[in-house]
């Protein structure tokens, strides 16, 4: 080392400087590089996350817009269907009611007719009953006179015609 002394090189100075540099290296590593690099990494990760989240939110918005559109469409269709159904139901109801009313009326009418018929038959029967008596009376009257076959028939015919 003595040849290097004029240049100021000496072992103790060199060792001091090497140790000093290593100490500085350690200090800066712990206090500066690690925190700053961690911070830079964290920040870039954060920015990446945020960008991803924004992208995702955008997609979500598009998706939900689509679904809203879909459900709107669905609701429209449903409404249309409901209107159609309601109309159909109303028409059917009306038809049912009408046919029901018709059949009611018809049965009522038929009933009334049959009643009338029955009344009529009853009346006829009554008349017939009364007529038999009448015939007997008439016969008695005719027999009082001379009653032949021919006049007999004529009388019955006449009576019947009158009674009807």
């Amino acid at each position: 080392m003595s040849a290097l002394t004029p240049l100021g090189l000496n072992l103790s100075g060199l060792i001091t400087q090497i140790i000093s540099f290593i100490i500085l290296f350690t200090i800066l590593y712990k206090l500066l590089y690690q925190p700053v690099i961690n911070m830079l990494d964290q920040r870039s990760a954060k920015i990446k996350d945020n960008l991803d989240a924004a992208e995702k939110a955008k997609q979500d918005i598009a998706k939900s817009e689509e679904s809203i559109q879909d459900s709107l469409e669905e609701a429209k269709n449903e409404r249309r269907q409901m209107i159609v159904d309601a109309k159909e139901a109303a028409a059917k109801f009306r038809e049912d009611e009408m046919s029901k009313a018709k059949t009611d009326i018809e049965t009522e009418w038929l009933k009334a007719r049959s009643e009338i018929q029955r009344e009529k038959n009853a009346a006829i029967d009554e008349v017939r009953k009364n007529f038999a008596g009448l015939v007997i009376t008439a016969a008695e009257k005719v027999i009082d006179k001379s009653l032949d076959d021919k006049s007999h028939d004529e009388v019955i015919e006449k009576v019947l015609k009158k009674s009807l």
């Binding site: 240049l7 100021g8 090189l9 000496n10 100075g13 060199l14 001091t16 400087q17 090497i18 000093s20 540099f21 290593i22 290296f25």
Partner: peptide
């Protein structure tokens, strides 16, 4: 301005 310093850094 001391060769010890610069040599120390260079060696490390």
């Amino acid at each position: 301005t001391d060769l010890n310093t610069t040599l120390a850094i260079a060696i490390v």
